[in-house]
Nucleic acid binder design. Structure first.
Lengths: 191, 191
DNA sequence: TAGATTTCTTAACCTATATTAATGCGAGTG
DNA sequence: CACTCGCATTAATATAGGTTAAGAAATCTA
Protein backbone atom coordinates (compact mmCIF):
# COMPACT_ATOMS: atom_id res chain seq x y z
CA UNK A 1 0.00 0.00 0.00
CA UNK A 2 1.08 3.56 -0.62
CA UNK A 3 1.52 6.06 2.18
CA UNK A 4 -0.83 9.03 2.44
CA UNK A 5 1.66 11.41 0.89
CA UNK A 6 2.58 9.01 -1.89
CA UNK A 7 -1.08 8.54 -2.64
CA UNK A 8 -1.59 12.28 -2.86
CA UNK A 9 1.45 12.75 -5.09
CA UNK A 10 -0.13 10.42 -7.59
CA UNK A 11 -2.75 13.08 -8.20
CA UNK A 12 -0.84 16.23 -8.98
CA UNK A 13 -3.42 17.06 -11.57
CA UNK A 14 -5.52 18.85 -8.96
CA UNK A 15 -4.90 22.44 -8.05
CA UNK A 16 -1.97 23.04 -5.78
CA UNK A 17 -3.91 24.99 -3.14
CA UNK A 18 -6.14 22.04 -2.36
CA UNK A 19 -3.14 19.75 -2.47
CA UNK A 20 -1.00 21.73 -0.08
CA UNK A 21 -3.83 22.23 2.41
CA UNK A 22 -4.37 18.48 2.44
CA UNK A 23 -0.66 17.88 2.82
CA UNK A 24 -0.75 20.01 5.96
CA UNK A 25 -3.19 17.57 7.54
CA UNK A 26 -0.69 14.76 7.29
CA UNK A 27 1.91 14.67 10.00
CA UNK A 28 5.06 12.64 9.97
CA UNK A 29 6.02 11.42 13.42
CA UNK A 30 8.46 9.02 15.04
CA UNK A 31 7.72 7.11 18.21
CA UNK A 32 10.17 5.29 20.43
CA UNK A 33 9.60 1.67 21.28
CA UNK A 34 6.89 1.18 23.94
CA UNK A 35 5.33 4.58 23.33
CA UNK A 36 1.56 4.66 23.34
CA UNK A 37 0.13 6.38 20.24
CA UNK A 38 -3.52 6.06 21.16
CA UNK A 39 -5.38 5.19 24.34
CA UNK A 40 -8.75 3.47 24.40
CA UNK A 41 -11.26 6.24 25.00
CA UNK A 42 -9.41 8.89 23.03
CA UNK A 43 -11.86 11.10 21.23
CA UNK A 44 -9.65 11.83 18.29
CA UNK A 45 -9.36 8.80 16.02
CA UNK A 46 -6.22 8.82 13.92
CA UNK A 47 -5.01 6.63 11.07
CA UNK A 48 -1.37 5.61 11.12
CA UNK A 49 0.57 4.54 8.06
CA UNK A 50 3.74 2.71 9.12
CA UNK A 51 6.79 3.74 7.14
CA UNK A 52 9.30 1.97 9.37
CA UNK A 53 8.96 -0.08 12.54
CA UNK A 54 6.08 -1.99 14.05
CA UNK A 55 2.83 -1.05 15.78
CA UNK A 56 0.06 -3.08 17.36
CA UNK A 57 -3.52 -2.41 18.45
CA UNK A 58 -5.15 -4.14 21.40
CA UNK A 59 -7.87 -4.02 24.05
CA UNK A 60 -7.61 -4.61 27.76
CA UNK A 61 -10.44 -6.59 29.34
CA UNK A 62 -11.98 -6.30 32.83
CA UNK A 63 -9.34 -8.64 34.25
CA UNK A 64 -6.58 -6.43 32.88
CA UNK A 65 -5.64 -8.90 30.19
CA UNK A 66 -4.44 -7.62 26.81
CA UNK A 67 -5.96 -8.93 23.58
CA UNK A 68 -4.09 -7.99 20.42
CA UNK A 69 -6.33 -7.08 17.52
CA UNK A 70 -3.65 -6.57 14.89
CA UNK A 71 -0.02 -5.85 14.11
CA UNK A 72 1.14 -3.23 11.62
CA UNK A 73 4.63 -3.59 10.15
CA UNK A 74 6.03 -1.41 7.35
CA UNK A 75 3.52 -0.58 4.66
CA UNK A 76 0.48 -1.30 6.82
CA UNK A 77 -2.29 1.05 7.84
CA UNK A 78 -3.58 0.82 11.39
CA UNK A 79 -6.56 2.47 13.03
CA UNK A 80 -9.36 1.76 15.42
CA UNK A 81 -12.30 0.57 13.36
CA UNK A 82 -14.81 1.26 16.09
CA UNK A 83 -16.90 4.35 15.75
CA UNK A 84 -19.26 3.89 18.68
CA UNK A 85 -19.78 6.94 20.81
CA UNK A 86 -17.13 8.72 18.78
CA UNK A 87 -14.35 7.34 20.94
CA UNK A 88 -11.75 4.67 20.37
CA UNK A 89 -11.79 1.22 21.94
CA UNK A 90 -8.29 0.11 21.12
CA UNK A 91 -4.86 1.03 22.35
CA UNK A 92 -2.14 1.47 19.78
CA UNK A 93 1.51 1.35 20.75
CA UNK A 94 4.96 0.92 19.22
CA UNK A 95 6.73 -2.44 19.48
CA UNK A 96 9.80 -0.95 17.79
CA UNK A 97 11.02 2.57 17.12
CA UNK A 98 8.52 3.51 14.49
CA UNK A 99 8.09 6.19 11.87
CA UNK A 100 4.54 6.94 10.74
CA UNK A 101 2.37 9.25 8.72
CA UNK A 102 -0.70 10.29 10.71
CA UNK A 103 -4.03 11.70 9.63
CA UNK A 104 -7.22 12.40 11.55
CA UNK A 105 -10.10 10.11 10.74
CA UNK A 106 -12.18 13.20 10.08
CA UNK A 107 -9.66 14.62 7.62
CA UNK A 108 -9.22 11.20 6.10
CA UNK A 109 -12.93 10.86 5.36
CA UNK A 110 -13.65 14.45 4.41
CA UNK A 111 -10.50 15.50 2.58
CA UNK A 112 -8.19 12.63 1.75
CA UNK A 113 -10.67 10.16 0.34
CA UNK A 114 -12.54 12.67 -1.85
CA UNK A 115 -9.21 14.02 -3.10
CA UNK A 116 -7.63 10.79 -4.28
CA UNK A 117 -8.75 8.81 -7.28
CA UNK A 118 -9.80 6.15 -4.85
CA UNK A 119 -13.19 7.76 -4.54
CA UNK A 120 -14.48 5.42 -7.21
CA UNK A 121 -14.75 1.66 -7.18
CA UNK A 122 -11.07 1.24 -6.38
CA UNK A 123 -11.62 2.62 -2.92
CA UNK A 124 -14.36 0.12 -2.24
CA UNK A 125 -12.02 -2.58 -3.42
CA UNK A 126 -9.38 -1.58 -0.89
CA UNK A 127 -11.91 -1.80 1.91
CA UNK A 128 -13.28 -5.08 0.60
CA UNK A 129 -9.81 -6.55 0.68
CA UNK A 130 -9.58 -5.51 4.29
CA UNK A 131 -12.92 -7.11 5.05
CA UNK A 132 -11.78 -10.29 3.31
CA UNK A 133 -8.84 -10.48 5.71
CA UNK A 134 -11.15 -10.07 8.69
CA UNK A 135 -13.57 -12.65 7.29
CA UNK A 136 -10.72 -15.16 7.04
CA UNK A 137 -9.64 -14.46 10.58
CA UNK A 138 -13.15 -14.89 11.97
CA UNK A 139 -13.57 -18.21 10.19
CA UNK A 140 -10.19 -19.29 11.51
CA UNK A 141 -11.14 -18.31 15.05
CA UNK A 142 -14.40 -20.26 15.02
CA UNK A 143 -12.96 -23.33 13.35
CA UNK A 144 -9.21 -23.79 13.84
CA UNK A 145 -7.06 -25.33 16.58
CA UNK A 146 -4.16 -23.54 18.26
CA UNK A 147 -1.54 -24.80 15.86
CA UNK A 148 -3.67 -24.04 12.82
CA UNK A 149 -4.16 -20.51 14.12
CA UNK A 150 -0.43 -20.12 14.52
CA UNK A 151 0.17 -21.24 10.96
CA UNK A 152 -2.45 -18.79 9.76
CA UNK A 153 -0.63 -16.03 11.64
CA UNK A 154 2.73 -16.78 10.04
CA UNK A 155 1.11 -16.58 6.62
CA UNK A 156 -0.65 -13.30 7.40
CA UNK A 157 2.46 -11.71 8.89
CA UNK A 158 5.49 -13.27 7.22
CA UNK A 159 8.70 -12.43 9.03
CA UNK A 160 6.96 -10.87 12.01
CA UNK A 161 7.15 -13.85 14.35
CA UNK A 162 10.83 -13.05 14.86
CA UNK A 163 10.10 -9.43 15.72
CA UNK A 164 7.41 -9.77 18.39
CA UNK A 165 7.44 -11.69 21.67
CA UNK A 166 5.63 -15.03 21.45
CA UNK A 167 3.26 -14.01 24.18
CA UNK A 168 1.94 -11.31 21.89
CA UNK A 169 1.43 -13.78 19.09
CA UNK A 170 -0.47 -15.97 21.56
CA UNK A 171 -2.58 -12.96 22.50
CA UNK A 172 -3.35 -12.34 18.84
CA UNK A 173 -4.36 -15.98 18.43
CA UNK A 174 -6.58 -15.98 21.50
CA UNK A 175 -4.55 -18.59 23.41
CA UNK A 176 -2.07 -18.45 26.29
CA UNK A 177 1.69 -18.15 25.75
CA UNK A 178 2.13 -21.51 27.50
CA UNK A 179 -0.28 -23.22 25.11
CA UNK A 180 1.52 -21.75 22.10
CA UNK A 181 4.88 -22.85 23.41
CA UNK A 182 3.60 -26.36 24.06
CA UNK A 183 1.92 -26.72 20.71
CA UNK A 184 4.97 -25.46 18.82
CA UNK A 185 7.20 -27.83 20.75
CA UNK A 186 5.12 -30.93 20.14
CA UNK A 187 4.79 -30.02 16.48
CA UNK A 188 8.57 -29.59 16.09
CA UNK A 189 9.24 -32.85 17.92
CA UNK A 190 6.57 -34.64 15.90
CA UNK A 191 8.49 -34.00 12.72
CA UNK B 1 -30.21 0.12 5.82
CA UNK B 2 -32.04 0.91 2.61
CA UNK B 3 -32.46 -1.61 -0.18
CA UNK B 4 -30.69 -1.08 -3.48
CA UNK B 5 -33.80 0.26 -5.19
CA UNK B 6 -34.69 2.52 -2.29
CA UNK B 7 -31.17 3.87 -2.32
CA UNK B 8 -31.41 4.62 -6.01
CA UNK B 9 -34.79 6.28 -5.65
CA UNK B 10 -33.24 8.76 -3.26
CA UNK B 11 -31.29 10.12 -6.20
CA UNK B 12 -33.84 10.89 -8.83
CA UNK B 13 -31.91 13.99 -9.71
CA UNK B 14 -29.81 12.02 -12.18
CA UNK B 15 -30.90 11.47 -15.71
CA UNK B 16 -33.49 8.79 -16.15
CA UNK B 17 -31.57 6.78 -18.76
CA UNK B 18 -28.72 6.08 -16.37
CA UNK B 19 -31.22 5.39 -13.62
CA UNK B 20 -33.26 2.89 -15.56
CA UNK B 21 -30.22 1.04 -16.85
CA UNK B 22 -29.00 0.68 -13.28
CA UNK B 23 -32.43 -0.46 -12.16
CA UNK B 24 -32.23 -3.26 -14.71
CA UNK B 25 -29.16 -4.63 -12.96
CA UNK B 26 -31.10 -5.18 -9.78
CA UNK B 27 -33.16 -8.32 -9.66
CA UNK B 28 -35.85 -9.11 -7.17
CA UNK B 29 -35.99 -12.79 -6.32
CA UNK B 30 -37.65 -15.11 -3.83
CA UNK B 31 -36.06 -18.27 -2.54
CA UNK B 32 -37.75 -21.11 -0.71
CA UNK B 33 -36.40 -22.26 2.65
CA UNK B 34 -33.26 -24.39 2.30
CA UNK B 35 -32.45 -23.12 -1.19
CA UNK B 36 -28.80 -22.43 -1.88
CA UNK B 37 -28.25 -18.96 -3.32
CA UNK B 38 -24.50 -19.20 -3.74
CA UNK B 39 -22.02 -22.05 -3.65
CA UNK B 40 -18.42 -21.68 -2.52
CA UNK B 41 -16.39 -21.49 -5.70
CA UNK B 42 -19.00 -19.63 -7.70
CA UNK B 43 -17.33 -17.16 -10.02
CA UNK B 44 -20.09 -14.62 -9.94
CA UNK B 45 -20.20 -12.80 -6.62
CA UNK B 46 -23.58 -11.31 -5.82
CA UNK B 47 -24.80 -9.01 -3.08
CA UNK B 48 -28.13 -9.83 -1.50
CA UNK B 49 -30.31 -7.34 0.31
CA UNK B 50 -32.88 -9.18 2.44
CA UNK B 51 -36.36 -7.70 2.20
CA UNK B 52 -38.11 -10.54 4.01
CA UNK B 53 -36.89 -13.80 5.51
CA UNK B 54 -33.50 -14.97 6.69
CA UNK B 55 -30.23 -15.95 5.00
CA UNK B 56 -26.92 -17.21 6.31
CA UNK B 57 -23.39 -17.53 4.92
CA UNK B 58 -21.01 -20.31 5.92
CA UNK B 59 -17.96 -22.38 4.99
CA UNK B 60 -17.52 -26.12 5.08
CA UNK B 61 -14.16 -27.36 6.33
CA UNK B 62 -12.15 -30.45 5.28
CA UNK B 63 -14.05 -32.60 7.79
CA UNK B 64 -17.36 -31.53 6.28
CA UNK B 65 -18.25 -29.33 9.24
CA UNK B 66 -20.20 -26.11 8.68
CA UNK B 67 -19.02 -22.81 10.18
CA UNK B 68 -21.51 -19.99 10.01
CA UNK B 69 -19.98 -16.64 9.17
CA UNK B 70 -23.10 -14.50 9.48
CA UNK B 71 -26.88 -14.34 9.49
CA UNK B 72 -28.88 -11.83 7.47
CA UNK B 73 -32.44 -11.05 8.58
CA UNK B 74 -34.65 -8.33 7.11
CA UNK B 75 -32.78 -5.14 6.26
CA UNK B 76 -29.36 -6.77 6.17
CA UNK B 77 -26.94 -6.99 3.28
CA UNK B 78 -25.09 -10.25 2.78
CA UNK B 79 -22.22 -11.10 0.45
CA UNK B 80 -19.00 -13.00 0.34
CA UNK B 81 -16.25 -10.57 1.32
CA UNK B 82 -13.51 -12.75 -0.10
CA UNK B 83 -12.08 -11.76 -3.43
CA UNK B 84 -9.26 -14.25 -3.78
CA UNK B 85 -8.91 -15.86 -7.18
CA UNK B 86 -12.13 -14.13 -8.19
CA UNK B 87 -14.24 -16.88 -6.70
CA UNK B 88 -16.40 -17.08 -3.60
CA UNK B 89 -15.48 -18.98 -0.46
CA UNK B 90 -18.81 -18.95 1.31
CA UNK B 91 -22.10 -20.69 0.78
CA UNK B 92 -25.23 -18.63 1.17
CA UNK B 93 -28.60 -20.28 1.74
CA UNK B 94 -32.10 -19.48 2.92
CA UNK B 95 -33.16 -20.44 6.44
CA UNK B 96 -36.68 -19.19 5.72
CA UNK B 97 -38.60 -18.36 2.60
CA UNK B 98 -36.79 -15.21 1.65
CA UNK B 99 -37.27 -12.26 -0.65
CA UNK B 100 -34.17 -10.42 -1.80
CA UNK B 101 -32.81 -7.78 -4.10
CA UNK B 102 -29.72 -9.03 -5.91
CA UNK B 103 -26.93 -7.19 -7.65
CA UNK B 104 -23.66 -8.42 -9.13
CA UNK B 105 -20.57 -7.34 -7.25
CA UNK B 106 -19.22 -5.96 -10.50
CA UNK B 107 -22.32 -3.86 -11.13
CA UNK B 108 -22.36 -2.85 -7.49
CA UNK B 109 -18.83 -1.50 -7.65
CA UNK B 110 -18.95 0.00 -11.14
CA UNK B 111 -22.48 1.32 -11.39
CA UNK B 112 -24.33 1.38 -8.10
CA UNK B 113 -21.69 2.94 -5.88
CA UNK B 114 -20.70 5.70 -8.31
CA UNK B 115 -24.37 6.45 -8.91
CA UNK B 116 -25.51 6.95 -5.35
CA UNK B 117 -24.53 9.88 -3.21
CA UNK B 118 -22.64 7.40 -1.10
CA UNK B 119 -19.57 7.84 -3.25
CA UNK B 120 -18.32 10.39 -0.79
CA UNK B 121 -17.35 9.97 2.83
CA UNK B 122 -20.73 8.47 3.72
CA UNK B 123 -19.92 5.35 1.79
CA UNK B 124 -16.68 4.90 3.69
CA UNK B 125 -18.64 5.34 6.86
CA UNK B 126 -20.99 2.50 5.96
CA UNK B 127 -18.06 0.20 5.39
CA UNK B 128 -16.32 1.37 8.53
CA UNK B 129 -19.39 0.52 10.54
CA UNK B 130 -19.25 -2.95 9.05
CA UNK B 131 -15.61 -3.26 9.96
CA UNK B 132 -16.39 -2.12 13.50
CA UNK B 133 -18.83 -5.02 13.82
CA UNK B 134 -16.19 -7.46 12.62
CA UNK B 135 -13.60 -5.95 14.95
CA UNK B 136 -15.93 -6.52 17.90
CA UNK B 137 -16.56 -10.10 16.88
CA UNK B 138 -12.85 -10.86 16.53
CA UNK B 139 -12.12 -9.43 19.94
CA UNK B 140 -14.98 -11.46 21.36
CA UNK B 141 -13.67 -14.63 19.73
CA UNK B 142 -10.16 -14.23 21.11
CA UNK B 143 -11.27 -13.25 24.59
CA UNK B 144 -14.75 -14.47 25.56
CA UNK B 145 -16.11 -17.71 27.00
CA UNK B 146 -18.98 -19.67 25.49
CA UNK B 147 -21.69 -17.94 27.51
CA UNK B 148 -20.26 -14.49 26.83
CA UNK B 149 -20.21 -15.27 23.13
CA UNK B 150 -23.83 -16.30 23.29
CA UNK B 151 -24.79 -13.08 24.99
CA UNK B 152 -22.89 -11.14 22.35
CA UNK B 153 -24.85 -13.00 19.68
CA UNK B 154 -28.24 -12.15 21.18
CA UNK B 155 -27.25 -8.48 21.21
CA UNK B 156 -26.02 -8.54 17.63
CA UNK B 157 -29.08 -10.37 16.33
CA UNK B 158 -32.00 -9.50 18.60
CA UNK B 159 -34.98 -11.77 18.02
CA UNK B 160 -33.07 -14.17 15.79
CA UNK B 161 -32.34 -16.84 18.38
CA UNK B 162 -35.97 -17.93 18.12
CA UNK B 163 -35.78 -18.23 14.35
CA UNK B 164 -32.69 -20.39 13.88
CA UNK B 165 -31.83 -23.83 15.27
CA UNK B 166 -29.50 -23.66 18.26
CA UNK B 167 -26.92 -25.75 16.51
CA UNK B 168 -26.52 -22.95 13.98
CA UNK B 169 -26.04 -20.41 16.73
CA UNK B 170 -23.39 -22.70 18.19
CA UNK B 171 -21.74 -22.88 14.79
CA UNK B 172 -21.71 -19.08 14.59
CA UNK B 173 -20.13 -18.91 18.05
CA UNK B 174 -17.48 -21.50 17.26
CA UNK B 175 -18.65 -24.00 19.88
CA UNK B 176 -20.58 -27.28 19.74
CA UNK B 177 -24.39 -27.46 20.10
CA UNK B 178 -23.92 -29.61 23.21
CA UNK B 179 -21.69 -27.01 24.85
CA UNK B 180 -24.20 -24.26 24.11
CA UNK B 181 -27.05 -26.31 25.50
CA UNK B 182 -25.15 -27.07 28.69
CA UNK B 183 -23.96 -23.53 29.21
CA UNK B 184 -27.44 -22.10 28.71
CA UNK B 185 -28.89 -24.69 31.07
CA UNK B 186 -26.44 -24.03 33.89
CA UNK B 187 -26.90 -20.30 33.46
CA UNK B 188 -30.71 -20.57 33.66
CA UNK B 189 -30.49 -22.85 36.71
CA UNK B 190 -27.92 -20.56 38.30
CA UNK B 191 -30.47 -17.75 38.45
C1' DT C 1 29.94 -7.33 32.33
C1' DA C 2 26.77 -8.12 36.27
C1' DG C 3 22.52 -7.85 37.77
C1' DA C 4 17.81 -7.15 36.95
C1' DT C 5 13.92 -7.97 34.26
C1' DT C 6 11.31 -10.03 30.89
C1' DT C 7 10.30 -13.91 28.11
C1' DC C 8 10.24 -18.83 27.02
C1' DT C 9 9.82 -23.51 28.23
C1' DT C 10 8.41 -27.35 30.87
C1' DA C 11 5.62 -29.73 34.00
C1' DA C 12 1.72 -30.87 37.12
C1' DC C 13 -2.71 -30.12 37.64
C1' DC C 14 -7.41 -28.18 36.52
C1' DT C 15 -11.42 -26.72 33.75
C1' DA C 16 -14.11 -25.70 29.79
C1' DT C 17 -15.38 -27.50 25.87
C1' DA C 18 -15.35 -31.55 22.55
C1' DT C 19 -16.80 -36.16 21.60
C1' DT C 20 -19.78 -39.90 21.73
C1' DA C 21 -23.93 -41.83 22.69
C1' DA C 22 -28.59 -42.38 24.32
C1' DT C 23 -33.16 -40.41 24.95
C1' DG C 24 -37.09 -37.69 24.10
C1' DC C 25 -39.29 -33.99 21.72
C1' DG C 26 -41.30 -31.56 17.86
C1' DA C 27 -41.96 -30.40 13.09
C1' DG C 28 -42.71 -32.00 8.58
C1' DT C 29 -44.52 -35.52 5.42
C1' DG C 30 -47.11 -39.34 3.74
C1' DC D 1 -52.91 -39.79 12.39
C1' DA D 2 -48.49 -42.35 12.36
C1' DC D 3 -43.88 -42.25 10.96
C1' DT D 4 -39.72 -40.22 10.15
C1' DC D 5 -36.06 -37.29 10.84
C1' DG D 6 -33.75 -33.54 12.55
C1' DC D 7 -33.02 -31.14 16.83
C1' DA D 8 -32.27 -30.40 21.84
C1' DT D 9 -30.91 -32.21 26.00
C1' DT D 10 -28.28 -34.91 29.18
C1' DA D 11 -24.61 -37.69 30.69
C1' DA D 12 -20.10 -40.20 30.55
C1' DT D 13 -15.73 -39.69 29.01
C1' DA D 14 -11.80 -37.53 26.54
C1' DT D 15 -8.89 -33.75 25.41
C1' DA D 16 -7.19 -29.19 24.24
C1' DG D 17 -6.03 -25.51 26.34
C1' DG D 18 -5.88 -22.79 30.90
C1' DT D 19 -3.58 -22.04 35.36
C1' DT D 20 0.09 -22.04 38.37
C1' DA D 21 4.70 -22.40 39.32
C1' DA D 22 9.55 -22.72 38.73
C1' DG D 23 13.73 -22.73 36.30
C1' DA D 24 16.30 -21.53 31.93
C1' DA D 25 17.20 -18.41 28.40
C1' DA D 26 17.24 -14.07 26.46
C1' DT D 27 17.13 -9.12 26.76
C1' DC D 28 17.71 -4.83 28.92
C1' DT D 29 20.16 -1.62 31.81
C1' DA D 30 23.44 0.25 34.78
Amino acid sequence: MLSFTEEINQHKNSNSIELSSLMKKIKRQTFAKNTILQNAGDEKISLFYVKRGLLRSYTIDDKGKEHIFMFAPEGWLIADGSINSGATELFIDALENTEVEVIDQKDFLELFLPFTALNDSKRAEVMMRRMAVMQKRIIMLISASAIERYEHFTKTYPGISQRVPQKMIASYLGITPEALSKVKGTKARGK
